[in-house]
Design a protein around this nucleic acid. Structure first.
Length: 779
DNA sequence: CGCTCAAATCTTTTT
DNA sequence: GATTTGAGCG
């Protein structure tokens, strides 16, 4: 490779890039050129001639990151990077299983269940087992099963702790059998199958260990237990050169099993003697970095690192406290417009929020003002009902035994196959252990006849689409299934019809993008002669139809929900979705206790620290400008709620903030003093607001010391009259309760008889009280 | 059997 | 607020 690529690296980056064949752990701060290091490292390795493109595996966490890496590498390398093993954990597992489907015990045309398919499948099992859905909530059970899978535990490995759990293990076993019967795998199963295959097949293991001389892992802090174990099979300690890049401060997926501890484990198990830290930030101005450093220093459990920048201090952070979410949205809009007028492209401005539900107000403000915007996340394209219906038909063409798809469309559009008929069919299927499709002939009479007609419909579709292009197949199925007709006759079906049209377009462009010809071809084959998944010793030349590939694409990448590319639009997304991205200007909205930090997150062990890391991620997305805002009242879940300022605001350096709304108060006015008193007198000082029970779990040790001072600041500003609740109470007000003593109002919601208040009592923790019942005296 | 309307429920983040 | 479930009617 040409050496100019190396010339632009700083000493730490250069050291990381040119490391030899040894395992390495790179602690890469936000904006420290992490992706650049990863890609340059790959290019460097290849240029050294020690390893070919087939000998490198690079794993990322998101599709976005994988694509980014591929694009950058393509610009650096003289050959097609498509054939290289660069992808997400799940994407690579899928590739692996397509190559080794036989050894993995899967049918060749196996399909992937997305999150909602998985819940639906689990729900069917629960129903079939006659279990109470109240006690066995499908979503929760699905989550538990996924959790077990991430522990590499099959049903036989789980030791149930009680009767309830014993039943769930039974559901797990049944669910597994069902998936196997139907030829489908869920996300966790993709990982687990590959793990087991590698673990139990020495020849296969040896082959891949020899093949992948270099394994690079991005966002290592987000790996879960199974992913780490998986990694160790491909590149064991002492054997493979694993290049792990991560940032413990940006670990924001613990809620779904990510273990930051993997970084420590890696350091130990791979005997890393020298951890490389990338602390030079190339992204943000001084004030922004100061804020980030200051905030994250409040976390206890860190590997420790401080970002620095050569850029100037830049503008201070602009902070605005709005009376309502509506006002907040209007402020964002006005500030964004002024930035835009100042010469900033709209696409360089991001509006971030903690949860998707918060986008609505902002969207409507932008919409009414006629400002173009683009929302990421939320309900995505392939998750829409009409799209899932169409996909279900397509999946049946590939695999008639896919019961999930069968059930989804057997009576949609309505064709007189009701719940009773389906039930009978399920009974018949269960009795013989066959799929629903296979059991159709078991039913006689009217029901059997209508089912038979459905079978004929699918078979007709299959005959008619044989040998057709992907576009033609999709088009034909949308029409032939009756979906198009159904939505045409539905007065609200116009949008859904448009989406179905978009699906046809997507199918067409998928073929061009993925390089598929008109006929079924092998997976994209590159000039290196190594198609993805088609390893030399595997079933070379295995064929995957364009349709199968398209279906996989649909379930593995849910796709963006709006594809109005080209237009310069404001970027709206959750903070999670913003990870890995950067913008000139960032608006961070909804900085309210309960929202951010999220009250539900505070229930979890390490919840607060994870929320703080999330805040850290949000701050470090900004290059030049950062705007922070909150609303005193907010429409949430259909009712108005009142919140106090997020504690995170009090954890930012005062000198980097510029308050646009009056940051009045200071200490001395009534309720703050009372609040401080109530706090001081309370026994459980280590209690975290909204999560009193954590004290017990914490057992006194390991928790960050309470910071009452910060808290007093957080609630220091008096709430203007505007935000007064109709009960006469205000957020931040001190009250007295006969049983719980003195407390401070944190949140108010509901009206009249439904009015409730979340109140922080020193000794008793935070409690929700119904105002119509609880006797509260303002003090 | 299927459709419509009302009620109940759940709302953090996602490969 | 939005989506899913349930009751009642055609």
């Amino acid at each position: 490779m040409n050496s100019t690529l190396l010339q632009h690296l700083n000493p730490e980056q250069l050291a990381a890039v040119t490391l030899g064949d040894e395992p390495a752990l790179i602690l890469a701060g936000a904006g420290s050129g992490k992706t650049r290091v990863l890609t340059t490292r790959i290019a460097w390795l290849l240029s050294q001639g020690q390893v070919g493109p087939g000998g490198v595996m690079a794993v990322t966490f998101t599709n976005k990151a994988a694509k980014e890496m591929q694009t950058r590498l393509a610009a650096m390398l003289p050959y097609n990077v498509r054939g290289m093993w660069i992808g997400t954990f799940h994407g690579l597992c899928h590739r692996f299983l397509r190559a080794h489907w036989k050894a993995a015990g899967l049918p060749q045309g196996f399909q992937i269940l997305d999150a909602s398919d998985t819940v639906a499948a689990v729900k069917r099992v629960i129903k079939a087992m006659n279990l109470d859905e109240e006690r066995f909530v499908p979503k929760a059970v699905a989550h538990t099963i996924a959790h077990w899978k991430e522990e590499a535990a099959r049903p036989k490995d789980v030791i149930p702790r009680d009767e309830q759990e014993r039943k769930i293990v039974e559901v797990y076993a049944q669910y597994e059998a069902q998936c196997q019967r139907e030829g489908v795998v869920d996300f966790a199963e993709l990982m687990l199958r590959v793990y087991e295959l590698m673990r139990d097949d020495p020849a296969l293991r040896q082959h891949y260990q020899q093949r992948f001389r270099h394994v690079l892992v991005d966002e290592f802090q987000d790996t879960n237990k199974l992913q780490y174990a998986w990694l160790k099979l491909f590149a064991p300690p002492g054997g493979g050169a694993v290049f792990a890049v991560g940032d413990d401060d940006q670990s924001i997926y613990a809620f779904r099993g990510a273990q930051v501890g993997n970084m420590h484990a890696f350091e130990r198990e791979y005997r890393i003697n020298q951890l490389i830290k990338l602390e030079q930030n190339y992204r943000s101005c001084g004030h922004i970095l100061d804020a980030a450093n200051h905030l994250i220093s409040h976390n206890e459990r860190r590997l420790g690192k401080t970002l620095r920048t050569d850029q100037g201090q830049g503008e201070p952070l602009r902070v605005f406290e709005a009376p309502s979410d509506f006002d907040e949205a209007r402020w964002v809009l006005e500030e964004a417009q002024s930035l835009h007028r100042g010469g900033l492209a709209r696409s360089e401005i991001a509006v971030l929020y903690r949860s998707n539900a918060q986008s609505r107000v902002i969207e409507s403000a932008l919409f009414n003002a006629g400002i173009p915007y683009r929302v990421y996340g939320g309900l995505r394209f392939f998750e829409r009902a009409e799209i899932k219906h169409a996909l279900a038909y397509l999946r049946l063409l590939e695999n008639v035994n896919d019961d999930t798809s069968f059930l989804r469309v057997v009576n949609f559009p309505a064709r007189a196959i009701g719940a009773r008929t389906v039930e009978q069919l399920q009974d018949a299927a269960k009795a013989t252990g066959r799929s629903l499709w296979q059991s159709v002939s078991a039913l006689q009479g009217r029901a059997g006849a209508s089912l038979q007609k459905f079978v004929e419909l699918i078979e007709g579709l299959r005959r008619a689409t044989e040998g057709q292009t992907l576009r033609a197949i999709v088009e034909h199925v949308v029409e032939g299934s009756g979906l198009a007709a159904h939505y045409r006759s539905d007065k609200d079906g116009a949008e859904r019809l448009e989406n179905l049209d978009e699906l046809i377009t997507a199918a067409e462009s998928f073929v061009t993008q993925e390089g598929f010809g008109k006929d079924a071809v092998a997976l994209p084959v590159d000039e290196l002669g190594q198609g993805p998944g088609l390893t030399p010793d595997a079933d070379t030349g295995e064929i995957m139809s364009p349709l199968a590939a398209f279906l996989t694409h649909a379930s593995l990448e849910a796709g963006d929900n709006q594809a109005q590319a080209g237009q310069d639009a404001l970027q709206l997304m959750t903070i999670h979705a913003a990870k890995g991205l950067e913008f000139d200007a960032v608006f961070l909205t909804g900085l309210e206790e309960g929202l951010f930090p999220n009250e539900r997150a505070l229930q979890d062990f390490d919840g607060l620290e994870e929320e703080r890391r999330l805040m850290y991620v949000a701050i470090t997305r900004a290059r030049k400008r950062l705007h922070l805002s909150l609303a005193q009242s907010r429409m949430l879940h259909g009712q108005t709620r009142y919140h106090v300022r997020s504690r995170f605001l009090a954890e930012l350096p005062e000198e980097s903030l510029k308050w646009l709304s009056p940051k009045q108060g200071g200490f001395g006015s009534g309720f703050e003093r009372d609040y401080a008193n109530a706090w001081q007198r309370g026994a459980g000082l280590s209690g975290v607001v909204g999560a009193g029970h954590r004290e017990a779990r914490a057992g006194g040790g390991g928790w960050p010391a309470p910071k009452p001072a910060a808290w007093q600041q957080a609630v220091a500003a008096p709430v203007p009259k505007k935000a007064e609740h109709d009960s006469g109470l205000r957020v931040g007000q001190a009250v007295f309760h006969n049983k719980f003593g003195e407390g401070v109002v944190l949140t108010l919601e509901g009206t009249g008889p439904d009015a409730r208040a979340h109140i922080q009592f020193g000794r008793h923790g935070a409690k929700w009280l119904a105002l119509s019942v609880a006797k509260l005296t303002p003090i």
